[in-house]
């Protein structure tokens, strides 16, 4: 028997698999297909203070390595999440949940985090300072170490629950941003969010996405995720949730060797709704193949000297 459990910021997970925010809604669609309580946890749809429609459609495009999205943080707003989504979610998911939060000001981040952290179901806050699809928010805070630290301090001031800062691969120096978040009190780092890209419609001779650009996700960005998790692991001592293009149990081990304590699965859920179930079921066999008894033993295992 192998042991797949890990501890993320003081909370034990049965396994390191965490569906990434924005690819799993509030879980119900997947709960129709399988018991989502097999997951380590999941990070629910990014939540803001006000309800948001997001960007105009079309907001989905494809590339050889995955997809681009310019959804732009559609969500019903924090009140509706607390009053409607969390009670519904509580009927299908019985583990601590990760609340993903986004905002357009430091004050909004703090307010939404404070309200969600007060919910018993919420185990961790994942603070998205890296959404590429909104203007004047999201990635603007994650681009520089100082603004990332400001958001971190503001959120840490309103909750005792673990605060995980979600970083963008578009930052000039992601390791510096991660270090700055750690210095500001962050309990963990998650990376990578999507990478800004563009497709052009040959017929209309114009960007395919109404927003122009969209965030690239899927297996095409996996090597970028591995490299950045590897770099951030050397820069910080707090746990890392690694993500970006994960499709298979082998990818999970690879990101953990790079330094991740837990692993997000994003785009794969959209094309293969059972992706996380398959990964979790395959983990023991793949661990045995590589001689791993305790998954925690391999965290950062690719770093030598």
């Amino acid at each position: 028997m192998v042991n797949t459990s890990v501890t993320l910021c003081g909370i034990e997970l049965d396994n390191p698999i965490i569906p990434a925010s924005g690819t799993f809604g509030y879980g119900y669609e997947f709960a129709e297909l399988y018991d989502i309580n097999i997951l380590g946890t999941f990070s629910f749809k990014g939540t803001t203070r006000e309800a948001r429609f997001g960007n105009p459609t079309p907001r989905i495009a494809e590339y050889a390595g995955g997809l681009l999205n310019s959804v732009g943080l559609q969500n019903p707003g924090v009140d509706a999440v607390i009053d409607e989504e969390l009670p519904k979610l509580g009927r299908v998911f019985h583990k601590p949940i990760m609340a993903n939060v986004s905002g357009f000001s430091v004050a909004e981040y703090a307010e939404v985090c404070e309200r969600l952290a007060a919910q018993e179901q919420v185990g961790w806050l994942e603070v998205n300072i890296s959404c590429p699809n909104v203007h004047g928010g999201g990635a603007a805070f994650g681009a520089e170490p100082e603004s990332a630290a400001q958001v971190t301090r503001a959120v840490k001031a309103v909750t005792k629950k673990p605060v995980i800062m979600k970083l963008s691969p578009a930052a000039a120096d992601i390791a510096a941003v991660a270090r700055s978040c750690e210095d500001a009190g962050a309990d963990g780092i998650s990376l990578i969010n999507t990478l800004p890209g563009m497709r052009i419609d040959l017929k209309r001779r114009a960007p395919l996405l109404a927003n122009g650009t969209g965030g690239m996700s899927g297996p095409g960005i996996f090597p970028l995720a591995v490299r950045m998790v590897y770099q951030v692991y050397e820069a910080v001592s707090i746990p890392i949730i690694g993500m970006g293009g994960v499709c298979y149990a082998e990818d999970v081990l690879e990101l953990m060797l790079a330094g991740a304590t837990a692993v997000g699965v994003g785009a794969a859920n959209l094309t293969e709704p059972m992706a996380c179930k398959h990964i979790i079921e395959n983990m023991p066999a793949v661990m045995e193949r590589y001689g791993i008894k305790n998954i925690t033993d391999i965290i950062g295992g690719a770093h030598h000297g």
């Binding site: 924005g22 429609f53 709704p273």
Partner: peptide, 15 residues
């Protein structure tokens, strides 16, 4: 509408 998942998870096709 252009869809990501087709089953309601990604919110790509909202109107």
């Amino acid at each position: 509408e252009r869809m990501g998942c087709g089953f309601g998870a990604c919110m790509g096709c909202t109107c």
